[in-house]
């Protein structure tokens, strides 16, 4: 009896790893962990119904997921990855991605031009843009410039993104510009952060930590991407999104197909669906992602909250992924030598 139970349990254990293969095809998608309830409702579940397949989600921040992609290079488990543009370029250079057959994407022509081939070689397509700025308690401080992050009222009350997040290089580039820096190692920004590091509450790894820190009054200000704004707004406190005089930073997230994926067709269908007017409109209306599809029409209040419209998109000063990557060793070394120690 006991032996049979154990055999049964063991067999069940072995099977779970491969169970999906037996009935339906499985598409494994790697995404940022934020707003998963919205994606599930507006993207994963409708897609599952359409394709008759199972969508399995891996969630995490960009660097963690890149590390996993690299570790599993010989036996890739992920089919499609949604990730920051420069991280995708890094992955492409490491031979982890395969080109997208844009002919298979019915919605390709509807994308803003900068989203069509942001990495070159058709390695990825952009699915959303976002701005990056400072959120702050209007009753406690005023923020008019990136330099205001280090004002006395924010000593011990400010959180910045960890160097491993996608927001960190954007912060460094904007802060450096504000401080009059001109070198690609972001030296001035790193020196300023290093000089004030004792007054920074934490370097967060996930933007979702920010509303918690706000709620507990650990912080009065933080640097975040626009995608974290909806959850920060829910905190019952006077919190605003700053428009610094030096401008806001920004970035693009892209979709790419992992090299060695066994579901290439399904992967194309999924990407195409994600870029469709229908899905992009729903996700935009939930204030999760700004649309990369030109045909998406939004009401004014939604449009205000997002990075929306041809003019806005044209004015985005995105850092070129190649520039960011080429100089990464320099600013990483600066950060590790001065801030992290």
């Amino acid at each position: 009896m006991l032996v049979r139970t154990i055999l049964g349990a063991t067999a069940a254990l072995m099977l779970t790893g491969t169970a999906h293969a037996a009935d339906k095809p499985t598409l494994t998608v790697s995404v940022f962990g934020i707003s998963q309830d919205v994606y599930k409702r507006d993207l994963y579940t409708p897609f599952e119904a359409k394709c008759g397949c199972t969508v399995v989600i891996e969630a995490g921040n960009a660097s963690e997921r890149l590390a996993k992609l690299e570790a599993n290079k010989a036996n890739p488990v992920v089919d499609v990855t949604a990730i920051a543009d420069f991280v995708a370029l890094d992955a492409a250079k490491k031979g982890l991605l395969q080109p997208i057959d844009t002919g298979k994407l019915a919605n390709f022509g509807k994308l803003y031009d900068i989203a069509k081939d942001p990495l070159g070689d058709k390695m990825a397509v952009g699915y959303t843009f976002y701005s990056t700025s400072i959120v702050y308690r209007t009753d406690k401080v005023k923020i008019a410039s990136w330099k205001d992050l280090f004002q006395p009222a924010l000593k011990g009350r400010v959180a910045l993104p960890n160097i491993a997040t996608t927001q960190a290089p954007i912060l460094l580039s904007m802060l450096d510009k504000a401080l009059g820096g001109t070198t690609p190692d972001y030296g001035k920004a790193i020196d300023a952060i290093a000089a004030n590091k004792g007054d920074i509450v934490t370097f967060y790894a996930r933007g979702a930590q920010v509303p918690q820190l706000m709620e507990q009054e650990e912080i009065f200000a933080a640097v975040v991407g626009r995608f974290d704004w909806p959850s920060i707004r829910k905190v019952q406190m006077p919190i605003a999104w700053a428009t610094p005089t030096e401008g806001m930073g920004g970035g693009m997230n892209v979709l790419a197909i992992v090299k060695g994926s066994k579901q290439v067709d399904l992967a194309h269908q999924f990407i195409d669906y994600w870029l469709s007017e229908e899905v992009q409109t729903k996700i935009s209306n939930a204030l999760v992602d700004s649309p990369a599809n030109k045909d998406v029409k939004l009401a004014d209040d939604k449009a205000q909250a997002l990075t929306y419209g041809a003019d806005t998109v044209a004015s985005l000063k995105l850092i070129k992924p190649a520039d960011l990557l080429d100089n990464r060793e320099k600013w990483l070394a600066g950060w590790n030598g001065k801030v992290a120690r």
């Binding site: 660097s63 963690e64 590390a67 996993k68 690299e70 570790a71 491993a164």
Partner: peptide
């Protein structure tokens, strides 16, 4: 964990 997950 950080060394592995962030920088491989």
């Amino acid at each position: 964990y950080q060394r592995v997950s962030v920088a491989n």
